[in-house]
């Protein structure tokens, strides 16, 4: 009986010796979390083109993951037509540059839909900022995704004044819709043009055009991509247009095109890319 008594006492003492510091640690931890926030995080937010889902960039993300030593965690959102959001995937606690893909339940083409999608993007964006509390982000838009970004940056980003966009890259975004003309302006372009003064001044924009022939990538006319300059030039800090030709330049192949992946790595992610990639991107003479 005496032995049992001792065992119990030791057990209780050990338990106290664990619980008390554990309780203190959890209090202190809550305090540090409160003060730290997640300000160091700067996500790369991607928007696919029309009729593509939140899984559109999977092969691009795999392609990016192959070369980089850094692992990016991936969070996918689907915004329903009533503004509710479905999430899949997650952001690692220590990941400061996660990928976030935003898809829309209604992902149809056309100006009316794109206008709505920009509003849904705003809903999703606000939810993300509220959850993850980031101050900076980078944006990538494929096809109409680039138009949604542009509308959002012109009209809705100011609703979240604390958050700043640093770089935007659009891939084959038809700023003048399907028009091949250099003069006729579609209503989509007119809207983007009208609100252009709302664009953040500090933004750096890269607009990439893919061309299978001299005029288009098979879906989006090169002239329509060119219309981006009327929107961005003189509104943002830097605006660069890049044309990619050669293998795999059909419209839907562009996001996983090796050349474009290299461009994303160097310009959007600002990775410390090897010289071979840098030379390929910038056509510098060999030293």
């Amino acid at each position: 009986m005496k032995r049992n008594w001792w065992k119990w006492l030791v057990g209780v003492l050990v338990l106290m010796g664990v619980c008390w510091p554990a309780y203190n640690w959890s209090k202190a931890n809550v305090k540090t979390l409160k003060n730290a926030g997640r300000t160091r995080m700067a996500p790369v937010i991607m928007i696919p083109g029309s009729s593509a889902t939140q899984n559109r960039f999977d092969s691009l993300i795999t392609e990016l993951g192959k070369e980089t030593p850094k692992k990016h965690s991936v969070l996918k959102l689907t915004v329903q037509t009533n503004g509710t959001i479905k999430y899949s995937g997650s952001i690692d606690r220590k990941d400061n540059e996660p990928f976030i893909v935003i898809g829309f339940a209604n992902n149809k083409d056309g100006k009316a839909n794109i206008d709505k999608q920009a509003v849904w993007l705003n809903t999703a964006f606000k939810a993300l900022v509220k959850t993850y509390g980031f101050n900076h982000f980078y944006a990538l838009g494929h096809s109409n995704g680039g138009l949604i970004w542009t509308l959002f940056l012109e009209r809705y980003l100011k609703e979240t004044p604390k958050v700043q966009i640093d770089r935007l890259m659009t891939i084959a975004s038809p700023y003048n819709m399907e028009s091949t003309s250099t003069t006729a302006k579609t209503s989509m372009f007119k809207e983007l043009y009208r609100y252009r003064s709302g664009l953040p001044r500090s933004l750096t924009v890269y607009s990439i055009a893919g061309t299978e022939n001299y005029s288009s990538d098979g879906t989006v006319p090169a002239n329509s991509v060119n219309y981006g300059k009327y929107i961005y030039q003189n509104q943002v800090k830097h605006f660069t247009e890049i044309t990619v030709t050669g293998a795999n330049t059909a419209h839907s192949d562009l996001p996983q095109n090796k050349q474009i992946v290299a461009l994303i790595r160097q310009y959007l992610l600002a990775e410390n890319v090897p010289d071979s990639v840098r030379r390929q991107n910038q056509r510098q003479p060999k030293q």
Binding site: Y87, S90, I91, T131
Partner: peptide
């Protein structure tokens, strides 16, 4: 389940903070 990093968990944490 990536328990600690699921979106719902992060939302809860932000709320609580």
């Amino acid at each position: 389940y990536s328990g600690n990093s699921a979106v719902s968990t992060v939302q809860n944490l932000q709320y609580a903070l």
